[in-house]
Design a protein around this nucleic acid. Structure first.
Length: 424
RNA sequence: GGCGAGGUAGCGAAGCGGUCAAACGCAGCAGACUGUAAAUCUGUCGCCCCAGUGGCUUCGAAGGUUCGAGUCCUUCCCUCGCCA
């Protein structure tokens, strides 16, 4: 079997790793974990890299553990945060843990006899520590000097807001997690994003001091977008894994719209395609960039992974209707199926009677424009489309005759923002 | 608590009594060009309407001076630096 280390290296996933990790992978079946913060009830694609990485290691015969941070979430990781976090209530955290557990489960195989995956909640042990015991058993092994040197702490020390004692302690909890998993499951590797290096090495230290064993760490690089925008953010907001928050269609579109400069890296990061397959896409990208085959494959693979193959089919069908076919020839039901995810507004049929509704009013009313003035400007500049036909006339009115099957009108602003008007 | 600097549209930043709904840059939005890309270019970017040498509400807050205030005065609030 190929060495997972080489695989990760080829994929550009190793930002930093402890000495001897490659040998460890070669020598034995490794149990490794990654922690996920329950800051929301759904994970977003920022976490996707780590989920895929866990799944990848399982495919290589190693045993993954995903931690839902129900315990650490009570405290808040200062890493990468410029300001103190607002604490979530225990109820919120519990609800969030349940949400992300379901998403994590999708990526892991719990039934592999040789190397089953595990999904645990660190509240199971962290919540039951008593303060004195914790200070004696864990706190004693870290000097404040050491903790102050951590970048996450240091940066906050220099800021005006400082860092609370609570968040300062976070490091100890995560170190304790690693020790706990080491004891329970023989977990010897912790992975994470590059901002986790400090937390990970603290855990390695603790295991070394208390168990006299060598544990390892590996961190992945920060995923960037060539456009300079933070990865996973779009005009429309964060790309979530939860289909209720980000429809599979928008999810697919996010990946499909990947910049040429990013697409190869993303194929390596987020798909299980092997070297030959990716090489082929690299040459297609060079010879026929307009085909966007690499983006298409990326979107297909990742959407299938997160939402299932049937959602890929639906997203592709929706895309073709949205961008090329003449929408007015479809039946109302087909249009609805394609745009199921798109926001919609119901408007009583009688408002479309007589002279109908003014286009400008309608655009403002369904919030495609923030105000009527903005709606006017939008129409004047040719940015409004009804059923994929541009409407540039300020006086334009919409009547029931314009509705597809007498039931719906597809309004679009620019190339990407669609809104369905349902005639009720 | 003392001294100094400052609070202008999403952000940054001009403005120093009328020509200010407020220069300029960024972000945003739309258009052109394209490959549902990037870059570039154009327009737009407080609200309302009967769309005009139109109306209304804005420049930390409240008062005041003035024919007229983002611009001057008073008080208050907040932010940032230095001192204690």
């Amino acid at each position: 079997m190929a060495n997972l280390f080489d695989e990760l290296q080829w994929r550009g996933l190793i930002f930093d790793a402890t000495e001897g990790l490659s040998d460890l992978f070669a020598r034995e079946r490794v149990t490794a974990y990654i922690g996920f913060d329950p800051t929301a009830s759904s994970l977003h694609i920022g976490s996707l890299l780590h989920m895929v990485t866990l799944a990848r290691m399982q495919r290589f015969g190693h045993s993954p553990i995903a931690i839902a941070g129900g315990g650490t979430g009570m405290i808040g990781d200062p890493s990468g945060k410029a300001k103190e976090r607002t604490l979530l209530t225990p109820d919120e955290i519990n609800a969030n843990v349940e949400g992300i557990k379901a998403q994590l489960a999708r990526f892991l195989d719990f039934d592999r006899a040789a190397n089953p995956a595990r999904l645990v909640n660190n509240a199971d042990w962290l919540a039951s520590f008593d303060l004195l015991g914790f200070l004696r058993d864990t706190g004693k092994y870290f000097t404040v000097n050491y903790m102050l040197q951590k970048e996450s702490v240091n940066r906050r020390l220099e800021s005006e807001d400082g860092i609370s004692y609570t968040e300062f302690s976070y490091l100890l909890l995560q170190a304790r997690d690693f020790l706990e998993l080491f004891d329970r499951y023989g977990c010897t590797l912790q992975m994470g994003g590059s901002d986790q290096w400090g937390n990970i090495t603290a855990g390695i230290e603790l295991i070394r001091k208390l168990r006299a064993k060598k544990a390892h760490g590996l961190v992945t690089p920060l995923v960037t977008m060539a456009s300079g925008v933070k990865f996973g953010k779009t005009e429309a907001g964060t790309i979530w894994l939860d289909p209720e928050r980000t429809s599979p269609f928008r999810f697919y579109q996010f990946w499909f719209n990947t910049d040429d400069r990013d697409v190869v890296a993303y194929l390596k990061y987020f798909t299980f395609l092997e070297r030959a397959g990716i090489d082929a896409l690299v040459s297609t990208l060079a010879s026929a960039p307009d085909k966007r085959e690499a983006q298409r494959v990326l979107a297909r693979e990742v959407t299938a992974l997160v939402h299932g193959a049937d959602q890929v089919t639906r997203a592709e069908r929706a895309s073709s209707v949205l961008f090329s076919e003449d929408i007015a020839t479809l039946t109302a039901d087909d249009v609805l199926a394609v745009f199921e995810d798109v926001p919609s507004t119901e408007i009583p049929a009688d408002e479309f009677g007589g002279a109908g509704l003014a286009m400008v009013d309608l655009v403002a009313r369904v919030q495609l424009a923030a105000s009527k003035s903005e709606a006017r400007r939008l129409v004047q500049s040719g940015g409004v489309y009804m059923n994929n036909r541009r409407i540039a006339d300020l006086q334009a009115r919409i009547t029931i005759a314009d509705a597809i099957g007498g039931r719906l009108v597809v309004l679009r602003k620019g190339q990407k923002q669609t809104h369905i008007v349902r005639v009720a």
